[in-house]
Design a binder for these strands. Structure first.
Length: 680
DNA sequence: ATTGTGGGAG
């Protein structure tokens, strides 16, 4: 039997023990010492493949005479076990000291190492050599070069390498799509995808191709193409591949088809923690937070070990629900399995604390992080802004800059909202210009909307209107809604009416804006116009969501619906609300009945007001929680003026801190005042 | 006659 073939087989099987036996045999029959380069190369390759790099290196270093294959075998070991830097060093050494030239096997490995280490200079040197030597015509070399350039964001250079190729092979397409996906260049990715569909038979696709194509579908939310690919891979029989399965789930999740996602998940035979996490992520991204948490219980039952991404998704689901109780138990579990210092998990913990209203906890978590990325900083800045703490937000931003961190698009959204909270108009405009000049970040809709909010809050309403008209946000509902809100707060009903008419023309598609418009009509006493808003809602099929509030008491969630009479304890809760409202009237509370339906009597209006869901929730929390404990209420809609006013008085009367998370931001009521300074 | 290019989740 051929010794070399045996060594090759044991290398492929990664059977370290078997190779060692052959090694011993070679020593015994005295073949190894007689400078048989090929046998030694085979041994180096064997140890390399099995991950025993030390043994490979000892053999390699002891060789008196080495050829290119010896170097190549050594390099392949380093490359496959994550020591790319070492491959580049070996190559330099090989060329310089032993005057050997890389061949068609060695060059792809060196190029691959350059790509993963970001060594563009060295990679370009390889390109030059490939050109001179003619190796550039070799498919493997060409692909490795394409990989280098796509990974270094030199797309044009990558395409130039391909100019001489009439047809691309599967591997090239996989490299290109993977690189374009990583960079989020969807325009180019769809072009490449279209060309691939034309040139390559579906049947030749492999698992990597499917994963990449699903990636493109997910990015573009192209469910049609996604379904087509799914159908094809069922035919090829790739659907039971672990990687393909996970990416199918991911694709359906990103395209919003949650039920297909679940069907795929249920029939998959091969599932690992990634598959499960992909399903959890799909639920979470589509805001099916309870389903995510429920599926995790099953994952636990099947003893699949969660990883950092699993915990991150679960914590984000808790954040979405403001489920502090479950979130805290996940936090404990994260500590137990030693993932506390992971950046992804740390970010999710900050987000969860912040979304549950515990902004101080969020900050301590932030402070205790070992590796903060730009997301950590953004979470803290936007978190403080959502809690109305502008000074703190700007403080974190300054700290970020002084530590030399690069701010991003999202960073400036947080910074501009902080400026708005503090009424710092000039500073806001300074940052708007600065982000472009200093950091080359093109301002987007969110930033412009922040500026509208900034001007509006500073009572510079006419400037805000001009600003909207002079920018790409001219037709943006959110920008006009922001201005409308400013008009309401500053009681400028003249401009408010105008803005409402503009909004009516653009035609908003969300209930929140419609409610604001109705409020404007009510405040301006334009009852005749109210029907126009109702008509718009009918035409656009906009449903007024019922007002929901919920609170957690000892790990139980209690949900309250506006006007609800079905709660078992509803009689007691209603009595408690009535009593509270009577009590705070002595402090100066006056019900704000203007925005309730106008064609009923006042008593009826007051009655409706008193059953707004957040009032029910606060009353229930007062009944069930120990004296002095803070009360945390979550709400699906924006808080109305009357509840806001009532909450202020209740906080004073009962000497409690009341934190309300509404659809947009946090209100922290203490001693009769709110952290939003009555502007929200 | 011993070495080689591309991988899923936040």
């Amino acid at each position: 039997m051929d010794i070399r073939k045996l060594l090759k087989a044991s290398a492929e099987a990664k059977n370290l023990k078997f190779g060692k036996i052959i090694h011993a045999h070679l020593i015994v029959i005295n073949q190894i010492s007689r400078n048989r380069v090929i046998e030694k190369n085979s041994l180096i390759n064997h140890y390399s493949k099995c991950g025993d790099l030390l043994s490979a290196r000892v053999l390699f270093d002891k060789m008196r005479k080495r050829n290119v294959v010896s170097w190549g075998s050594m390099m392949s070991g380093y490359l496959q076990h994550g020591y790319a830097q070492e491959v580049v060093e070996l190559c330099k050494h090989m060329v310089k000291v032993e005057k050997l030239s890389p061949n068609k096997h060695v060059l792809p490995m060196v190029l691959s190492s350059c790509s993963s280490c970001g060594l563009l200079d060295e990679g370009e040197q390889c390109h030059g050599y490939a050109f001179k030597s003619g190796l550039i015509f070799h498919q493997y070399v060409k692909n490795a070069l394409v990989y280098l350039y796509t990974m270094c964001s030199h797309l044009k250079a990558a395409m130039r390498v391909l100019d001489s190729s009439p047809r691309l092979d599967l591997c090239t397409y996989n490299i290109l799509l993977n690189g374009l996906l990583a960079q989020g260049d969807m325009n180019e990715a769809s072009c490449v995808l279209r060309r691939m569909i034309e040139e390559l038979e579906w049947s030749r696709w492999d698992g990597i191709t499917c994963v990449n194509v699903f990636g493109v579908c997910g990015h573009l939310k192209d469910l049609i193409l996604g379904r087509q690919v799914h159908g094809r891979l069922l035919k090829i029989g790739l659907d039971h591949d672990l990687f393909v399965g996970s990416s199918t789930i991911d694709m359906y999740g990103k395209c919003g088809d949650v039920s297909s996602m679940r069907t795929v998940f249920d029939v998959l035979r091969a599932r690992n923690e990634v598959t499960w996490t992909a399903a959890l992520t799909a639920y979470s991204q589509n805001e099916w937070f309870e389903e995510a948490l429920k599926l995790f219980l099953e994952m636990d039952r099947e003893n699949v070990v969660p990883n950092e991404y699993t915990f991150a998704v679960l914590l984000n689901s808790c954040a979405g629900l403001s489920a502090l109780g479950y979130g805290s138990s996940l936090h404990a579990r994260v500590e137990k399995v030693g993932l506390k210092h992971d950046t992804v998990v740390g970010n999710a913990l900050i987000y969860m604390a912040s979304k549950c209203g515990l902004i101080d906890d969020a900050h301590s978590l932030f402070e205790s992080m070992l590796d903060r990325d730009v997301i950590s900083w953004n979470l803290m800045i936007t978190g403080y802004s959502c809690h109305g703490l502008g000074m703190e937000a700007l403080g974190v931003f300054q700290q970020m800059l002084s530590e030399g961190k690069q701010p991003s698009y999202v960073t400036f959204v947080g910074v501009l909202s902080a400026c708005s909270l503090l009424g710092r108009v000039d500073e806001g405009f300074y940052y708007l210009n600065h982000m472009m000049r200093e950091y080359s970040i093109e301002p987007g809709l969110e930033h412009y909307t922040c500026i509208v909010g900034l001007l509006g809050r500073a009572r510079r309403l006419d400037e805000a209107e001009k600003f909207i008209r002079s920018n790409p946000i001219r037709q943006d509902v959110i920008a006009w809604r922001t201005l409308l809100n400013a008009c309401l707060v500053h009681q400028n009903y003249g401009l408010g009416k105008k803005v409402t008419d503009i909004l009516l023309e653009i035609g908003p598609d969300d209930a929140g804006t419609c409610i604001l418009m109705s409020n404007m009509h009510a405040r301006a006493k334009r009852w005749d116009k109210a029907s126009a808003v109702r008509k718009l809602m009918r035409e656009r099929n906009i449903k007024k969501e019922p007002g929901l509030s919920w609170i957690e008491i000892r790990n139980d969630t209690h949900v309250f619906v506006s006007g609800d009479t079905n709660n078992v304890e509803s009689v007691q809760i209603r009595e408690k609300v009535k009593k509270l409202l009577a009590e705070i009237r002595t402090l100066g509370y006056v019900p704000d009945i203007v925005t309730e339906l106008h064609d009923v009597d006042e008593e009826q209006k007051e009655d409706w007001l008193s059953y707004h869901s957040e009032k029910l929730a606060i009353a229930y929390a007062l009944m069930k929680s120990p004296p002095g404990a803070p009360i945390r209420v979550m709400k699906n809609l924006r808080m109305c003026d009357d509840c806001h006013s009532a909450a202020k008085y209740i906080s004073k009367f009962t000497n409690r801190t009341i934190i309300v998370r509404d659809a947009n931001r946090f209100h922290r009521f203490r001693e009769g005042l709110c952290s939003c300074a009555d502007y929200w």
